[in-house]
């Protein structure tokens, strides 16, 4: 176990597996969020379901997600450190040839996503009033409408979704290769399904703040 975690491949596998958990989560979370377009009642009932009726399951999921995030971020941080150490003298000139913008922004984008995650939880789940004074417990729908009434929160959210798009575009493609599961391909760098997943998730999430900002949800 120790040897596995210490190896660069082992850490990548941990990142891949936890990444898969998180992809599953964002898909579900997005589907849940879209219920905002079905009216306040429906949305608040959904929130109540999660936070009261099946709270035990919710906690189990929360723990799994928390563990996943911690492992994902720790492994990413350690691998990044190794990469930086592996090339102490930088090239004076290096031209990226085929690597995607998405792959090159995994690290900085990941940091933003992590920050977003903390603030997002503080804003909507933990109810940090220093951050979001209008927060009202139990009024999930109202919180969404109030939050995205602020252009700042809309922008903060949409930027996060942009990085999520990139993160998923590279991550969902890379994960099958990291786990040794993908099929051989004539053009291994070509990817279609990852683009679809990334777009669905990002557009799905973005509809909520945009819906509020543009007045479809009020």
């Amino acid at each position: 176990m120790r040897k596995f975690w210490d190896s660069s491949v082992g850490k990548k596998v941990v990142m891949g597996l936890t990444g898969l958990v998180l992809v599953g989560f964002v898909l579900g979370h997005m589907a849940g969020n879209l219920q905002v377009f079905m009216g306040m009642e429906r949305y608040n009932a959904y929130a109540k379901l999660l936070q009261e009726d099946i709270i035990e399951i919710t906690w189990a999921v929360r723990v799994a997600l928390l563990v996943s995030v911690v492992l994902h971020v720790t492994a990413a941080w350690q691998l990044t450190r190794r990469s930086w150490d592996a090339r102490p003298v930088a090239y004076a000139l290096r031209e990226a040839q085929v690597s995607t913008y998405a792959s090159r922004t995994m690290r900085w984008g990941g940091i933003y996503l992590f920050l977003f995650l903390v603030l997002h939880l503080g804003q909507f789940t933990l109810g940090w009033t220093w951050l979001f004074p209008e927060y009202a417990k139990g009024a999930a729908y109202g919180n969404v409408v109030l939050a995205f009434g602020h252009p700042f929160w809309v922008a903060f959210y949409l930027v996060a979704m942009f990085f999520l798009l990139l993160h998923l575009f590279h991550g969902t493609w890379a994960v099958l290769r990291t786990l040794g599961l993908a099929k051989n391909a004539a053009e291994p760098l070509q990817r279609r399904l990852p683009l679809i997943i990334a777009l669905v998730v990002t557009v799905g999430f973005s509809l909520v703040p945009l819906g509020v900002a543009l007045g479809f949800v009020r």
Binding site: V9, K12, S83, A96, V98, S99, S103, R104
Partner: peptide
């Protein structure tokens, strides 16, 4: 370093 599948 480790592999992040840049493809370079």
């Amino acid at each position: 370093g480790g592999c992040t599948l840049f493809g370079e």
